[in-house]
Design a protein around this nucleic acid. Structure first.
Length: 217
DNA sequence: GACCAGGCACATC
DNA sequence: GATGTGCATGGT
């Protein structure tokens, strides 16, 4: 498909989603640190479970970098239990905090001063942070214009024949970033709207739906 | 009771 | 480099 047509189709998809669903108000969090924690906790997990875990962290007064850095991994795991995979996720939160305190003295402001390509490389080196988690952090906590790709994004795009069925993360990300203006607000809205589309149609249980995430056609 | 959810690291071939 | 597996809770 030529570049101009692809630009038009991606833009039209966005406009249609926006007109249908309106702004999604992502990321739902009070602070940048809460965005980062949520990004780790939501790995392969329903957001409703993440909300419970975030409430647990707030109740235990652990939702700040310094508090979470000091608490034991065991206590941290107990606080995030409802999010599932709690032992692994506690280790992942700890590995991020180790990085934050070792390289940036525990300061998110200092961390986000780093230019995007360098920070992205550094975050990808943190054990437990993969591409989707890192890009979510950069986009929604750091307000950097980078497109977040997830399972929904790939499923929807491939069923609309905009990418092949086996397109990988980087290919899918490049499709958006090569054909749309690098606007972090729009990128954030676009990703949220794709998730909304997948969930909404799923909820309607339309058996003929081509993008339903539950019915893996 | 089965299936799914806003992944990731690691083992094995 | 591709493919398989463990990690775990809560909603439908």
């Amino acid at each position: 498909m030529n570049i101009t047509l692809m630009k038009k189709r991606l833009r039209r998809l966005y406009d249609t989603l926006y007109k249908t669903f309106g702004p999604q108000g992502w990321w739902p969090a009070d602070t940048r640190f809460e965005v980062i924690v949520g990004a780790i906790l939501t790995q392969n997990t329903a957001w409703s479970n993440v909300e419970k875990a975030i409430r647990g962290l707030k109740a235990a007064k652990l939702l700040t970098p310094s508090a979470m850095y000091r608490v034991s991994e065991k206590k941290l795991a107990a606080a995030i239990r409802p999010s599932g995979y709690y032992n692994i996720k506690a280790a992942r939160l700890k590995s991020f905090l180790g990085f934050l305190f070792t390289d940036y003295g525990g300061s998110l402001s200092r961390m986000f001063c780093r230019d995007m390509p360098a920070l992205r490389r550094e975050l990808l080196n943190v054990k437990g942070l993969g591409k989707e988690t890192v890009d979510s952090i950069l986009l929604y906590a750091g307000a950097r214009p980078i497109f977040v790709v997830d399972a929904y994004t790939r499923r929807i795009l491939s069923r609309h024949k905009l990418i092949s069925e086996d397109a990988d993360y980087d290919t899918t990300q490049r499709l958006f970033m090569d054909h749309l203006p690098h606007d972090n607000a729009m990128f954030g809205e676009y990703h949220a709207l794709l998730v909304r589309l997948a969930k909404d149609i799923c909820k309607n249980k339309n058996p003929r739906c081509g993008v339903c995430p539950v019915k893996k056609l």
